[in-house]
Amino acid sequence: MPLPYYVSPEQMMQDKAEYAKKGIAKGRSIIAMEYADGVLLVADNPSASLYKISEIYDSIAFSGAGKYSEFENLRKAGIRHADLTGYMYSREDVTARSLANGYSQSLGTIFSQELKPLEVEILVAQVGESGHANELYRISFDGSIFDERGFAAIGGRAEALQVFLKERYKTDPLTLKAALSLCVATLESGTNQKLPLEGLEVAALDRTRVGRKFRRIPPSESRQLLA
């Protein structure tokens, strides 16, 4: 029987992390940004039907970057978790914090125990109501979780976009129009080319809506907003 090779844990983790990072960096970016009435999410996504941003619950949205099949599974798991919690307790007991924790645990476990880590980075956003602040959580492939303020970027050249945003984002509330144009400018800075509005997926968690706050903003409306 051949002896198993010895690989030090450090080496193994490093290899896995590198593998995951490479996969995520290949993809396109997504930005979430707080604005006056809630949270805006903009993804560089040429497909009009395969979404990267979606609704999880009344005031919670999800977006995933990296490998589609992997973050799609995470999205579905999130919706199941949220609907089950809401059904068992009440709608207001479904929180982004609990969901983000769940994602963090699952990604962390998969990273340390499975041969192949998930090549995904995800973002969970919740719009705050009646005086509560918005919440933005960024969760990376190894389960590490970051509580972001104001804005967050995932996928592709996310770090460069964060730097770009840090210089330009102002803390006083932006209008939807201003937030959208800043997001588009940021995504364009990452790709070094003009992005057509049809190639952007835009959605918002809008505090002014009754019940379910999530809504998609079609290219026609984006065009009007940016005109």
């Binding site: 999880i56 579905k76 919706i79 609907d83």
Partner: peptide
């Protein structure tokens, strides 16, 4: 819950 769940999963 069933109908909302379907709508969210399937888009």
């Amino acid at each position: 819950t069933e109908l909302e769940h379907y709508e969210k999963l399937e888009g």
